[in-house]
Design a protein around this nucleic acid. Sequence first.
RNA 1: AGGCGCGUAGCUCAGUUGGUUAGAGCGCUACCUUGACACGGUAGAGGUCAGCGGUUCGAAUCCGCUCGUGCCUACCA
Length: 962
Amino acid sequence: MSKPSSSPDLPKAYDPSVIEEHWARYWVEEHLFDVPTPQSTQDNGEKFTILLPPPNVTGRLHMGHMLNQTEMDILTRWHRMLGDLALWVPGTDHAGIATQMMVERQLKEEGKTRQELGREAFTQRVWCWRKLYGGAILDQMKRLGASVDWSREYFTMDDRLSIAVKEAFIRLYEQGLIYRGAYIVNWDPSIQTAVSDLEVEHEERLGKLYHVRYPLADGSGSITVATTRPETMLGDTAVAVNPTDERYIALIGKTVRVPLTGVNGKPDREIPILADDWAKPEFGTGAVKVTPAHDPNDFAIGQRHHLAAPSILDETAHIALPGSPYNGLDRYEAREKIVADLEALGLLESIKDHTLTLGLSQRTGVVIEPRLSLQWFLAVNKTPNTGGKSIAQNAIDAVESMNGEKPAINFTPEMYKKIYLEWMTNIHDWCISRQLWWGHRIPAWHCKSCNQITVARDTPTHCEHCNSTDIVQETDVLDTWFSSGLLPFTTLGWPALTSTSPMSWIPDPHALTDDLANFYPTTLLVTGFDILFFWVARMIMLGCHFTLDIPMPDGSKRTLANAVPFKEVYIHGLVRDANREKMSKTKGNVINPIDIIERFGTDAVRFTLASMASPGTDIAFSEARTEGYRAFANKIWNAARFLFMNLDRARDAGYKITVKTPTNDPNQTPEPWALPEYTPLETRWIFDRLHAVSIEVDRALTNYRFDEAANAIYQFFWGELCDWYLELVKLRLVFPEYDFTKSTHNDTTALTLASLTGVFESALRLLSPFMPFLTEEIWHALYNQQPPAKSIALTRYPQPADFPADPIAASAMQTMQDLITTIRALRKDLGVPEKESTPINLHASNRIVALADANQDMLVRMARVNSMDFTAEPLSGTNARSTADFDVAVLYERQIDIPAERERLTKDLAKYEKGLEAANRQLSNESFMAKAPAHIVEGLRKQHAETKTLYDKTKAALDTLG
RNA sequence: AGGCGCGUAGCUCAGUUGGUUAGAGCGCUACCUUGACACGGUAGAGGUCAGCGGUUCGAAUCCGCUCGUGCCUACCA
């Protein structure tokens, strides 16, 4: 309770730049959204836990981040205001490849390479880099007003998270699910590391199909193979044909000489022709060259037939065959030269155009080279040696509904569930090793004596197999997504106190432990579909696999086996430009959120994104829309000015107005508004609307319908509160007298002031998750900078039960609005000057006559009516209008534009006629009458009657026009 | 090669199990600088719901085909 601020505090036009920075800083500095350990707060409340998809440290905020964070922030603020314990954990991802590339690029500018620096110095350099630039995106987040818990901020390479990654790796290894082996992987020759299947983008390109003749070793002829990559022939170890292919049956078992492979005077290499189903008779020549080290299919053939797999390309995709004339050539140079040489030898039969799908590295855009190399894999379809289901199976079970029950993890939109299951059902083992320096180093040591591997939590001194001390640590690091896949529980403190290792580095082990007990599993994940497989699927795989021992605050232990990391997944669309084009640097259509925020204000941009965020569709971001929402912010600002002005005047006149904001404590339900008998119609009505809009917003947000929630609030605030309620309130407060000292201090004035304040304050709270800055500013001003809570975000979210529903008032008000609108339109068509008041005649039911009579002041103010007569006879003619409920005539001497009026009436008549025909058709249709549900028939009858009335009235009006 | 989605007012999009006369914002037209607000007010115009066929008493909504468009997945040399 405090003195309201005076109106001069608020400038006439809303300027977001003046207030937003201040509140953004205030929220962080006051630690308003840091969640204390739950013992000290209400522990019977619901919990809402949400993990921010960690942006890359290399990242700059883009519109996708802003959409993602706006949605999460709306939900988090909403839950917090509902009294839930709302924890939103922020952090950043070390983003192995991306970051390493960034720093390497920087080194290159200095004329250095990472190899010159060495591993140790290079990683130091990356840490320095991350210190300098890594926080940029978090600073930008603060500008968005994201209500995260900054005290729990993490970085995926932090010590505690690194230990968790190591722990997870070791457990999986011990369960026999991580193995090391030589397989064909996707190799990026530009950054020289393996990447996973997901990090490869496929693109159709026009290439060539070469037919190459391989001479039979016995000189009896030749066999022609078809290939798109002639340069790999240097590594061929066989030619395969289909066993059923009659053309080649006689050749199976013979050998051919691979052209161009003779080195130093030696003859060309001799390789067998063998039978394998993989060779498809209908493709090319039906004979395929087999290069096990450079093609995944060929590798499989090689395995089946125990072929050697010589590598002919080095890690940079240059030919590595000492002595060969092609040695040192890039793969494409080699191709050119080999094709020319084959041609010269007369072994090149033909070259045909051929469209092929190329794999490109997502990060570098370089063509992926399938390469045989030693890598670490996570077996996803294998039963762990400790028993139980495979990782993929658990990840499927968590999402599939069992026995018709709701699945443990629910997807919105539902479509993504299908996509996820499809992918998870066909998943291959995951290559988790990367030949990078920046990342979590694999905790494995190779023994130089016995070649075996020792995997250990602490650096071992000797090989666990042969006791040799000649051991060296694995140089590979883990795929970044391996660590991010663990985040739902590692950010909450796992494996603190649950691990076999002491966790002495944890500053306050108990706090972290409580986090896991209190907040795991998390509630919701909000993200884009682009990381559905990369991240969402991996979190489900890893989360549902591990058994987590969770120490409870009371000292007991809870074991969570195969628990889901989150219960809900909400997938949003992509933010595109206004023309629905994908934003990209090359197209130059990237919108920088900070730029747009500076021009329109964060609130307006947030509201734009929310109001366009319809599930399952991308957002075509349009500035026009944002301009509209800036206008909305300005509208609210000015509505606040109107309120403050009246509160000032009231105060000057001796009124004492109490503002009251309910708390968000779920145990304390505020007293609902009790309206006395003398409450005016518009006040009953606005409370009814407030009741209705809180129902709608609650329903919409429950279903992730940010668009519907935003639109409902917009419509309420502008279309109902400002357009009608504020105008009508002037009747009680400022009309016809503006000077309160001269007006009577009657109950209605006081009630109206209190209602106006209460309604407006409630509307602010309703809006605050969407426009946190503006509402914070006005709310503090409302309390003259001494509010009952530190932030509007810490107050109660408006609930339907807080406001009295009043269907009778709602209906009466609707009639009054119809009447006012009809009179206004009529006045316009009659050419009545705006300021001139006119008498009206009204013909209507007794109920409506009584209503209009009781609310004459509304008609005076809103429709410039200066007197009203009621007629028993229906009204028609050029100065009258009819609705189904009433006829109204405006008495004005000037004549209406007859042709225009005739056109309008004719149009209406046609519309009614069409409606009548349709209704008649239905009502005389026996099947319809027999089969349609009663309320539909009833509704149609009513509509038919109304249309009939309108038709008749319009017809009469048209007849009088002549 | 498979799979998924989309096509509704000039533009960007809603339209919840089929049900009364299909909605919003922006834009457009006309009038109004009224003491909260011209980032405003008031009143309007604007759609054969891509096309064709089917199911139904009833279809923007369900089914089939055609056209257009976007995306994802895949080891065919």
